Amino acid sequence: MTSQANLQTARKDKVFTVTFNREDKMNAMTASFLQDLKAALDSVRDDDTISVVVLKATGKAFTTGYDLDGSDWILSQNPIAQAGTLDLERDRQDIRALLEYWWTLWKFPKPIIAQVQGLCLSGGGELIAMCDLVVAADIAKFGHPAARDLGIPPTVFLWPMLIGMRKTRELLYTARLFSAREAEAMGLINRVVPLEELEATVDAMAADIAKTPVGNLAILKQATSNFYENMGLFASGAQAAELDAVFHQSESFVRFFTKVAEEGVQAALADRKARFG
């Protein structure tokens, strides 16, 4: 097993496991976190002894999305330092770069299984959207609370394709959290199991998939990806990235990060809760 501040990695038979290791931060994603995740995946990308990748996490959250404290900000402009006022063109470039990051995971040639044991919110939806399969504990929760005031994911989590237009709009317009059972019923995830069975279920699934020759898995993955790409996946992502940059110019975005700059994240979250519920 290898370990670092953001994550741990381990190999067993043909399965490579990446464990998010920011439990004290609810596994919130930072710039260095994403760099470490990409490096871990790159280390086995062309390794034919590895057939399947499993992503899992320590603690109560799979990930609560992008880290809001600003010390390792996900984009080049720190909205806390700038009280939420961002240069639009630079923000566009940053969001396009983030989108390209997610597409590298989409194009990763080996199946990726997300093992979701708890909260999976906002940017976490982007992460699981790039995974091939998602297995969740029955206590897991999903959603995009930031939809009301902070922005949209450039991938829009692939929700329009995965769960349809009407459910996507409902979940974005209300920003409500929803259960693993509801996520399974909508087709957002593959399977829900009791928390105590989650590890064994994912282990068995990964071992079963690993029986298929690694080259065949790459072909099967590309064959299914092609349908989404041919429907305009990449073009839609580029358009959403533009809309996200525009969203970041909104009064609600500036208000939130001004509050963070002046009084801290918890005060901003409390103000947000009072405003939106």
Rank of each mutant, 00 (worst) to 15 (best):
V116N: 08
E89W: 09
Q117T: 11
I112L: 06
D42I: 00
L55N: 04
A129H: 06
L68T: 10
L41T: 00
I128Q: 10
K60W: 15
L34T: 03
I128G: 10
L133S: 08
K56Y: 05
M130Q: 10
D67I: 07
D87P: 05
I112S: 04
P109C: 03
D48F: 08
A31I: 05
L41D: 01
V44P: 02
K60F: 15
A31W: 06
A137E: 06
A83Y: 11
C120H: 11
D91L: 12
R45C: 02
I50Y: 08
L55H: 02
R148D: 11
Q82G: 06
R92S: 04
L41V: 00
R148P: 08
L133W: 04
L127E: 04
P109R: 02
A61C: 15
A61K: 12
D46I: 00
Q35L: 07
P79G: 07
K107H: 14
V52S: 07
Q117G: 15
D42V: 00
E100D: 15
K60C: 13
L127A: 03
D132Y: 02
L119W: 15
V44I: 04
S76R: 13
E100M: 13
A28P: 06
R148M: 11
A83F: 11
A61Y: 13
L75M: 14
Q82H: 13
K110M: 01
V53N: 04
